[in-house]
Design a protein around this nucleic acid. Sequence first.
DNA 1: TATTGTTATACTCTATAACTATA
DNA 2: TATAGTTATAGAGTATAACAATA
Lengths: 131, 131
Amino acid sequence: MTAREDLGAQFARIARRLVALEQPWLEKHGVTMWEYALLLRLRAAPAATQLELARAINYDKTRLIALLDGLEQRGLVTREPAAGDRRARTVKLTPAGRAAVTSTQREIHRMEDGLLPGEKRAALQRLLDEF
Amino acid sequence: MTAREDLGAQFARIARRLVALEQPWLEKHGVTMWEYALLLRLRAAPAATQLELARAINYDKTRLIALLDGLEQRGLVTREPAAGDRRARTVKLTPAGRAAVTSTQREIHRMEDGLLPGEKRAALQRLLDEF
DNA sequence: TATTGTTATACTCTATAACTATA
DNA sequence: TATAGTTATAGAGTATAACAATA
């Protein structure tokens, strides 16, 4: 019998490898992993508040400020005063932001398709959705 | 069609969750994740040099010192002058170290078995071994 | 009194450089 | 000249505390 590897270790090892493979594409498009995660989340839906956005991507609200500052300066997201609450600010993707995240993801998906056949990948992801 | 999640993000998310589930058991046994990874590696085989050990668990050689200091003080590992090279030191598990890693892993495996049936887990791990 | 966004601060983790003793 | 172990230092990443504006 071969030694049973811990699930956490196995998943972490594979995740590290996949993230490393994504890295060159993120760099090519000039975004960090956290920025990419944030843009992906905003593409799904605008964030009513920054706090909600921070929670959604599992990021610290105080670190989110600098992240948003950078993305806003580069014209990828906008911060607007929220409708009902003057303390809060809605965060939205700009057209440029939407284009950036979409083209980045397209290349990352292409990279993944080179790793394993599309059918196998889809089956694996369906299986992992149970978690 | 549902949005296709990036593989890296999916694996990282699951890995984070699994590591969080391991955490209470590691704390109960008084070891950090890195210490646990190191002990697991030593149980498989003693390390001829500290450098080899650092590389094996993907850890920085300069940080390894403090990790080994702690484990040695607690009597879980030993550092002995290497046979052929007076610069190097072999690192071995003590009986206490072996007992610690084994009992820790037993509980972690039990936790995993509560997550999903043994057969499914084994099948999943065989599938992931392709990576 | 609590919450949103923000800044400042402290802390942890990780990487780099340099030293010593050997080879 | 290069390598194993080590120490000190710097840097990135992360968490904590506190503040102003608003609820």
